[in-house]
Design a protein around this nucleic acid. Structure first.
Length: 877
RNA sequence: GGAGGCAUAGCUCAGUUGGUUAGAGCGCUCGCUUCACAUGCGAGAGGUCGUAGGUUCGAGUCCUACUGUCUCUACCA
């Protein structure tokens, strides 16, 4: 046995991980004799390093995969990283600006991509190291990257297939544009935030009718330069005479029609809306319905273009001010009022997003969404917790076409080629040698790359070999469970589901385990601006990976957010320290002892009690693990380890361990070893390092705990009667302790215990325990309280009356009032039970088991009451 | 506008399909350096489970309304 006095994870975590890796236990292979169990990691972005949210995600996955591996599944946890197109590109742009003083355009595409791959090598590698520190049992031989050859091949295959099926198309539509990143964004990539702004009321004069005008209200006056109509509600009587007439657009002095459209809300603003089809999604729709001209007045970088006339070249916000001034000058600004409204921001750079008309590639969603909704409706895919299905439906049922092209360089380049000579468009998996139509070799590839989520959507099968029907793909797909946060249900989970169904004809996973986000100790979201982020590596350096993992999982309900605090870490560390010391106790005593397998031991009552407790624990923990209720599973392991094993069983073994009976000592130690070993196995998925370290020191164990057999429930170990006996003894011990504390006697003071009972045999056979655990020097049996001559404290239990003579410490008056309080409590229990049993509804309708239990409870309390009364009478006489 | 979560001890949170006397951690009080552990041991105090109704023999748990709070989603110019 080689264990330091204090738990010190830094001494062994690294060594253990290295051993695991060397042993090849993490590797999974196609094995027809075993049932596969597969998890693909949600690939962390290579933008930086792992944060505490990743630590939670990986801990949950590792716990599940370790559990399944021990249960005998061929467990594969497939690791990888994500190129994170826009997020990484933003970082690299910043880097080259800082280090080389260049913009990406100045650097050029080829050089830029070199920098990006270097970044990937550096940060991708770092993330892998961090995953290892956490203890993640990933199959590193399969490490994937969303832009590696395999994934790239899958992306091209899927793009071409969808295009051929007519599910990918190119079109000019209104999309979200980030003027800072200069790329299109999908709807999911826009974040809205409320901002204080103004509502500007503008007068648009009616053509040919001097002095008459229509007032529109707008939050974006600068877009009026691109107005091509004003819309009113067809039922709005105020404006019915205007419909079909023309207005003169101020400043621009252009004729624009008044159209009637249901989209307009009569009650909002003035009931008249300026229509700018090029710069507003709703206006774009109105424009389509009324055949309006689309005039785009803004450049890609957010400045005004030549169609903005004298405002050309101005930044959009500058232009807004200038337009307002100009409108005021020409008398078209009627009034201004403060207004709060939601403005969309780029989820990566946070600039405000500009809705503009642009030619982009889209995925047609309607037909893809239907089977994806059905798969969840018919429970082929189950969300845990189930409430997240509603969030999923909500999005899927209202889904719009997915804009997948990005005007970026870092990512999968769109596999579309244009012939410079004949203009032919070629959508091909591999770059053509020449134009498929005219044979020209003068062609170019589409400049754009794909949305990063396009490749992530294929992750569960691209990493296993798709489009080739490999053995891996056949064996490990569909995967079993996907573990991720609720924040990427739309971005990722939904898209994997329809992609799996479309390209593999099968769901990508059976279960989706959703967890919450990790917040700081005050419940705030961790963010760079608040500076309240917690670095998992720092926590590991201070407390060890096991403590971090324990803190993130113990007692946490699925799907709910987690508060992370130092206090929590400390209490987790204390628990692991407790395991450490309990194990030291067991192992130190084992030295030189004859430890036998549990099957060769004849257990006595205390042993049967802990074996039955262990058995129950195994049953509930296994059940909870299978339901992915890891927080509860771990909490039950914790309670068993601390309260049953350490607080009670270890103490109960001491009389035997320090006694002279060698056979008894060996038997007890064998049970101690068995229970410790099995408990460590239950804990191993959550806290792998410390359990491995201790396990290797237990006599009789060979190999790693991570490939040991997971404990199994066995009804032969229930020992119901013995467990009840032990519980009665434990009640006696607790009662004596209570008497001593209440009397103010020192814990070390040895007292005499006088017992009235019909079950003398039980007390006799457990005398060792009672004496050792409650500081009793001698147990005396009497037939009734009348036989006691000294002043005593009294405690009445079911089947036992306990009396402790404590001489002058005994205060009769206090004792009487204490007994009266006990009596009152007992009375209220009797009353409660009686009212239930007197209720015909309860007796008739409640399950017989419960009625019986209630009857027993009543009898028990009535017996207690009788004894308390008898004791009270003694004092009164 | 739509949807969802949460409201339980001083604080942070558990609480399985409704069913014994509602639990834990931290904090607090009292007593202990007892031969694994003071990162500990023993004994306690502390809760009308947000409010009002309802269903039921029985509600922290199910239903309705309300109050407070957080989040997602839509983007009404």
């Amino acid at each position: 046995m080689d264990m330091q006095k204090t738990y010190n994870p830094q001494d062994f975590e690294k060594r253990i991980y290295d051993n695991w890796e060397k042993s090849g236990y993490f590797k999974a292979k196609v094995n027809p004799d075993k049932v596969p169990f597969t998890i693909v990691i949600p690939p962390p972005n290579i933008t930086g390093q792992l944060h505490i949210g990743h630590a939670l995600d990986e801990t949950l996955q590792d716990a599940i995969i370790r559990f399944k591996r021990m249960q005998g599944y061929e467990a594969l946890w497939l690791p990888g990283t994500d190129h994170a197109s826009i997020a990484t590109e933003v970082k690299i742009v910043e880097l080259i600006k800082k280090e080389e003083g260049l913009t990406k355009e100045q650097l050029g595409r080829e050089e830029f991509l070199k920098r990006a791959w270097a970044w990937k090598e550096k940060y991708g590698g770092r993330i892998v190291e961090q995953l290892k520190c956490l203890g993640s049992s990933c199959d590193w031989s399969r490490l994937a990257f969303t832009m590696d050859d395999r994934c790239s091949k899958a992306v091209k295959e899927v793009f071409v297939n969808l295009y051929d099926k007519g599910l990918i198309y190119q079109g000019s539509k209104i999309i979200n544009w980030c003027p800072s990143c200069k790329t299109a964004l999908s709807d999911a990539e826009v974040e809205y935030a409320e901002e204080d702004s103004y509502f500007w009321y503008l007068d648009y004069p009616l053509e040919g009718e001097e002095g008459k005008c229509l007032t529109v209200a707008t939050t974006r006056p600068e877009t009026m330069l691109g107005d091509t109509a004003v819309a009113v509600n067809p039922h709005d009587k105020r404006y019915s005479s205007f419909v079909g007439k023309y207005l003169i657009l101020p400043i621009v002095n252009k004729r624009i029609p008044v159209v009637a459209d249901d989209y307009v809300d009569m009650k909002f603003g003035t009931g008249a809306v300026k229509i700018t089809p090029a710069h507003d999604p709703n206006d774009f729709e109105v424009g389509l319905r009324h055949n309006l001209e689309v005039i785009r007045v803004m450049n890609d970088d957010g400045t005004m273009n030549e169609l903005a006339g004298k405002f050309a070249g101005m930044d959009r916000f500058e232009c807004r001010k200038a337009i307002v001034e100009e409108l005021k000058a020409v008398g078209a600004l009627k009034k201004t009022e403060p207004h709060k409204h939601n403005v969309g921001h780029c989820y990566r750079c946070h600039s405000s997003v500009e809705p503009i008309v642009s030619k982009q590639w889209f995925v047609k969603m309607a037909d893809l969404a239907k089977p994806a909704i059905a798969a969840v409706k018919n429970k082929s895919i189950k969300f845990t917790p189930s409430r997240f299905t509603k969030i999923y439906y909500n999005w899927m049922e209202n889904i719009k076409d997915w804009c997948i092209s990005r005007q970026l360089w870092w990512g999968h380049r769109i596999p579309v080629y244009y012939c410079e000579d004949c203009g032919e468009k070629m959508v091909l998996k591999d770059a053509p040698k020449c134009c498929t139509k005219c044979g020209s070799t003068n062609f170019r590839q589409d400049e754009d790359v794909l949305d990063t989520w396009f490749s992530s959507a294929l992750w569960p099968f691209s990493t296993l070999g798709y489009p080739d029907m490999t053995e891996d793909l056949k064996y490990f797909y569909p995967t079993d469970v996907l573990v991720t946060g609720y924040d990427i249900i739309f971005f990722w989970v939904a898209r994997m589901i329809f992609s799996g169904l479309e390209h593999m004809n099968r769901i990508p996973f059976k279960d989706v385990l959703i967890h919450g986000i990790v917040r700081d100790d005050k419940g705030r979201k961790m963010s760079k601006s608040l500076g309240n982020g917690v670095d998992p590596l720092e926590v590991i350096a201070e407390y060890g990976a096991d403590t971090l993992r324990f803190s993130l999982v113990n007692g946490v309900a699925a799907g709910s957010d987690i508060r992370f605090s130092k206090e929590k870490c400390e209490s987790s560390r204390n628990f692991i320290n407790k395991i450490w010391n309990a194990s030291r106790f067991v192992l130190m005593n084992c030295e030189g002892a004859d430890i036998r397998p549990i099957t060769e031991i004849k257990p006595e009552v205390k042993d049967k009690w802990i074996l039955s407790r262990l058995n129950h624990t195994v049953k509930s923990v296994t059940m909870l693990m299978e339901k992915y209720d890891l927080g509860m599973a771990l909490s039950i392991c914790h309670d068993f380890m601390w309260y049953d094993f350490c607080d009670w069983y270890i103490e109960l073994t001491k009389p035997a361990l320090y006694g002279d009976d060698i056979a008894k000592k060996n038997a007890t130690l064998s049970v101690l070893c068995h229970v410790l070993k099995e408990t460590l196995k239950l804990l191993h998925p959550f806290i792998p390092y410390v359990t491995e370290e201790i396990y290797s020191n237990i006599p009789g164990t060979t190999g790693s705990i991570m490939v040991s057999e997971y404990p199994r429930y066995n009804s032969a170990y229930n020992y119901k009667k013995d467990a009840e006996k032990m519980n009665a003894v434990m009640d006696i011990i607790k009662a004596v302790r209570q008497i001593k504390v209440q009397a103010g006697a020192a814990p070390s003071k040895k007292v005499e215990l006088i017992v009235v009972t019909e079950n003398r045999k039980l007390v006799d056979s457990s005398a060792d325990f009672i004496c050792k655990l409650s500081g009793v020097s001698k147990i005396v049996f009497v037939s009734s309280k009348q036989d006691i001559t000294e002043k005593v404290f009294t405690q009445v239990l079911n089947g036992f009356e306990l009396f402790v003579p404590l001489g002058d410490l005994v205060d009769i008056e206090k004792e009487v009032s204490r007994l009266k309080a006990e009596l009152e409590k007992t009375d209220s229990e009797i009353e409660r039970a009686e009212s239930k049993l007197n209720n015909p509804g309860f007796v008739e309708k409640a399950p017989a088991k419960l009625v019986d239990a209630e009857k027993q409870k009543l009898a028990k309390f009535q017996e207690l009451k009788a004894k308390i009364l008898a004791n009270l009478k003694e004092y009164e006489s």
